[in-house]
Amino acid sequence: MAKAAAKTVQEAAGVERRPALGGQDMSAGGVKVAVLPPANRVSLRARQEAVASLSRALGVALPQKPKTSAAKGGRTVFWLGPDEWFVLDEQGGDALADCGKAKGLHSAVDVSHRHVAFAVSGPGAEATIAAGCPRDLSLAAFAVGDCSRTVFGKAEILLYRVSEQEFRVECWRSFSDYVFGLLAEGARDAAA
């Protein structure tokens, strides 16, 4: 069954890992855009009946409300759709393996390498992202902890508000050049 088939990816690599844009950043005025280090990521799909067992297995209650996230111990789970969550582990945890421990029926797929993440921080962070994102990013409409897939220019991104003045932007690997370029343009304009 799905849970049994979930493969644990242990990355005891024998060759060098070369993340896209590894370590780059830029600053302009009141904004900093930094490429974040690799992280463990899982695309998790399940029906309602499996939510409780997955929450237990992951150690974080899967958020049930659209646009919200839940975090615990370096692991954040984002609500992306009514049967879709995105699990991010930045502290070396193996979310895929943990999903495999859940009894409820689900699909867990390792997407750690699919994404590149950026931290956009500072007083101009909102304006930077508004260069390409049509969403209302005010705290009232997109609060701390809120997350959502949306668009940024011609790329799809996953947007997460870390704090009042910091966003995490994730995009697919091959779009990272474009997203970084547009974030940099947005940052420069936010500083203008």
């Binding site: 260069a131 011609k154 790329a155 690997r173 091959s174 050049d177 370029g181 547009l182 947005g186």
Partner: peptide, 15 residues
Amino acid sequence: GHARGKLFDPTRRTA
């Protein structure tokens, strides 16, 4: 707006 030059359209590159 910003959509010119290398930001006209995403250029996707493989690893």
